[in-house]
Nucleic acid binder design. Structure first.
Lengths: 200, 200
DNA sequence: CCAATTTTGTACTGACTATTCCAAAACCTG
DNA sequence: CAGGTTTTGGAATAGTCAGTACAAAATTGG
C-alpha cells in the first residue's frame, strides 16, 4: 500500500542502545543517533517521534531482555538456589569481560540511567519503569532466596528481602566497577565474594 | 591591592558539587551553576575558567574528602579490620539515609561520573583522576584486608586484592541503589550481608 | 502503468549552549 | 582620597541542539 521502511527497527534500536549506553542520554545528540543507526533525521523522527521516544524504546527493550534473562537463570528449579544466583552473577561478569575484550561499551543501561536521571523530573517516566523493573527483579530474588533459606541452602542471618537487595546492589556494583575499568579476574573475585555472603 | 571576591570559593564549589551530583555534568548548564552558587556569569568564569574547570575542582575536592574519610576509618589500628570496614560501610549507608530524609541528592559523584564519562574522550582527565583515586582506595583496602587475613579475622577464601575489589563494588552498589530509591533499612541489610562475605 | 501512501533527504527554525567583551563599580594600598 | 587592580553585571556572539517543513523518491495494490 505504501513505501516500506528501509531499515529493521530492532537493529536501529540496538545501535541506539549501544550509543546511549556509551554516552548517556544527554550527551547523545540526534546526529549521533543518525550516525550510529545509519538513519536520516526524517526516518528517525518519523519512526520514533523524538530522541526521548527512541530512548524510551531502547530502555524498554533493554529492561525486557534483562528481565527475561534473569528469570531464565533464577527459575531453573533443578538447581540449588545458590547455584542459580552464581550462574547469573558469573554470566554478568563474563559478559562484561567479553565486552571489555571486544572494545564494546561496558556497564548497564539501567544503572547508568539511574545515575543520570534519578533526580530529573522531566524523565520521571523512565525512572518509573526502572523502579517497576527493579521491584520485579527483587521479588524474583526474594522468592528464590526465601526458598533457599527454607531448604537450608542460604543463610538466614539476613531476611530474604535484605539478601535480595544485596544481590541487586552487587550486580549494580559489578557493572559500574566494570565500566570503571576493573579487570576480568577481579570481576570473578567480586562474584565469588558476593556468593560467600549468601551461604549458610 | 584590588577588589576581593564577594563569595567564599569553597561554598561555591560545595553548591556546584551538589548540582553536579544531582544532575550530572552534561545536564548542568552554566546558568544552573549561577543559580546554585549565587554567582554571576562573569564571576564564575573569572574564578573557574570554564564549566569543565569548575567540575574538575568539584570532583577533586570530592575525591579528596572521600579519600581522607576512608583513610580515617581504615587506619584506626585499635579495631579489628572487619570492624573498621563495617564502620565505613555503615557510615555510607547512614549518610545515604540521612540525605534521603533531608531531600538532598543521593548517590556518589565519582560513581555517577564513571557512569556518565567513562567513554567520553573529552573528559579522559576526570576519569584518570578517578582511576588514580580508586587505585589508592583499593591499595588501602587490600593492605587492611591482608593484615586481617594474617590475623585470622578475615576469610582467606579470596585474595586480599579480590576482597578489596568486592568492598569497592559493594560501596558503589550501595550508593547507586540508594540513588535508585532503596529504603534505609534495606541499605543496612546490604551492609550486613556484604560484611558476612568477609568473615572467616 | 497509475494512484495513493509512506519514507526519505535537505534545508530550515527557534531555542538553548558555553563563553567572551566591556564598561562600571568596588576595593586595598599608599 | 587617589591610583591601580580586580571583580562584577549585562549584553552580545558563535555554535549546537532537538525538532520541523516540504518536496522528491519509492513502493504496493488495483
Amino acid at each position: 500500500m505504501a513505501r516500506p521502511l528501509s531499515f529493521r527497527r530492532e537493529t536501529a534500536v540496538a545501535a541506539a542502545t549501544r550509543t546511549f549506553l556509551r554516552r548517556g542520554l544527554h550527551a547523545t545528540s540526534a546526529e549521533d543517533l543518525c550516525r550510529a543507526t545509519g538513519l536520516g533525521r526524517s526516518s528517525l523522527y518519523n519512526s520514533f517521534g523524538s530522541k526521548d521516544g527512541l530512548f524510551a524504546e531502547c530502555l524498554g527493550d533493554y529492561l525486557g531482555a534483562t528481565r527475561e534473562r534473569g528469570e531464565a537463570f533464577l527459575s531453573d528449579a533443578d538447581l540449588p538456589v545458590l547455584d542459580r544466583i552464581a550462574a547469573l552473577l558469573r554470566f554478568i561478569a563474563a559478559e562484561e569481560a567479553e565486552r571489555a575484550a571486544a572494545g564494546e561499551p561496558r556497564g548497564c543501561l539501567a544503572v547508568n540511567t539511574v545515575a543520570e536521571l534519578a533526580d530529573d523530573p522531566e524523565h520521571a517516566e523512565s525512572m518509573r519503569r526502572i523502579d517497576e523493573d527493579t521491584d520485579a527483579r527483587l521479588r524474583l530474588l526474594t522468592d528464590a532466596l526465601r526458598a533457599g533459606q527454607a531448604a537450608g541452602e542460604v543463610t538466614a542471618a539476613v531476611s530474604a528481602e535484605g539478601l535480595a537487595a544485596f544481590v541487586n546492589a552487587a550486580i549494580a556494583g559489578l557493572r559500574i566497577t566494570s565500566q570503571g575499568g576493573t579487570a576480568a579476574d577481579r570481576l570473578d573475585d567480586i562474584v565469588a565474594t558476593a556468593l560467600r555472603a549468601l551461604a549458610p
